[in-house]
Write a protein that binds this DNA or RNA. Structure first.
Lengths: 212, 212
DNA sequence: ACCCTTTTTCAACAAGCGTTGAAATGGACT
DNA sequence: AGTCCATTTCAACGCTTGTTGAAAAAGGGT
């Protein structure tokens, strides 16, 4: 069990700080200070500030995509030759994110908050999200198309938009629901969030996309 | 029909720029330049940069709350003595936002994007949103409680969380769905967004909150 | 025409920013 | 011990930032 390298400490510090304050709200000096290294070391390892931001954003993307795709393949295999249900697909989309939280590493929590920041940003959102996550999303939408025969693309994508929004707000962990619900709901409780999100979203998809 | 004052031009410019790049991504000089005034004028009218940010955020809040509350009162009056349905309540929550878009003024569109920025931010979200919008939200949740007898607060607030997330992503107008759907859905089309969001969300509320 | 107040600009400040070239350190191999 | 290369620090650069005090301009009342 070795210590993380200084390079990794920079990534971890940048991840946490970017997630909380956004790209422009964080200085390289803050990141270096948090990581306990000299400012110049960030430039040595990553180049420009923007390159560091991209490195942080890309670091965990592959692992995330892999575990979600694996979850989708699992339910597809289990339900074969029929298509998996909407609930099963949504579940495969969400539950892997929950596992990352049980892990003691707080980095994953910061990473999801960073995704929320990027996904909701007019400026960053479009390109960065598409590049890393579009393939996976299309894979899930294809599965949903199988579960909802006859659904139009327009309806499917708008429903996905609603799912994506609800998920993104969960990632952000703003604690808004904590005060709103007077402590009855906690935005840090991802499991509760998904427990309520899965039936909610599945019912929404059926209502909008299902032939009557 | 008089020109807007320089003070208003600063607010408009700040609104547009803060919405796109966030608080830290915009300089007072950019705002002043966009508004066509000297840098020092922003300080003269609003004080610190943070005070300007708050002024922008608060400027349209009252009008927004008023039109949403009015829409809620309308459906309550129409359905009296019974409670309005879930669809009617969600509709009252969303449609007033759409009207702000028909208006030629692009400021409202920027303002909604700014709300998205604030609502998804760990740093800004909690306090700023609560202060201006909590009373209204509780009003709507009380109405939903009437439409969904027996629903627990926990279920109600998690469902609202899902609604809020979907709505926030719509506000952000990231154009992500445009590319994802290959142009079949446009994030600039608020009416289409709400047309799909209302039945989606209403079905979700019923699924999670309704007694069987 | 004068005064008073509000609005607007000008000029400058200290502080902090991202970035870089050169120096120092450390480890691996001979 | 000595060489080489990757890593890390040091020190400094040119630039931009938010903010401010004083000057200038504009407007209204008499």
């Amino acid at each position: 069990m070795s210590q993380p390298t200084k390079r990794d400490r920079i990534l971890d510090a940048a991840e946490a700080l970017f997630a909380e304050r956004g790209y422009d709200g964080v200085t390289l000096r803050q990141i270096a200070s948090e990581a306990g290294v000299d400012v110049a070391l960030a430039s040595y390892h990553f180049g420009k500030k923007l390159d560091l931001f991209n490195a942080v954003f890309e670091r965990r993307a592959e692992a995330l995509n892999r575990s979600r795709l694996e979850a989708l393949r699992n339910v597809q295999r289990e339900s074969a030759p029929a298509f998996p249900t909407v609930e099963q697909i949504i579940e495969a989309f969400l539950r892997p994110l929950e596992l990352t939280q049980e892990n003691a590493d707080p980095g994953w929590r910061h990473y999801l908050a960073l995704i929320a920041y990027v996904n909701n940003s007019t400026y960053w959102g479009k390109q960065m999200m598409s590049k890393l996550f579009d393939d996976l999303v299309q894979e899930f939408i294809a599965a949903l198309r199988g579960a909802l025969p006859g659904a139009s693309d327009e309806n499917l994508y708008w429903c996905y938009h609603n799912l994506s929004g609800a998920l993104t707000l969960t990632f952000a962990q703003t604690e808004r629901i904590d005060t709103l619900s007077k402590g009855k709901c906690l935005s840090s409780d991802f499991q509760a969030a998904y427990d309520h999100m899965i039936p909610f979203v599945a019912a929404g998809f059926r209502q909008v996309c299902q032939k009557n």
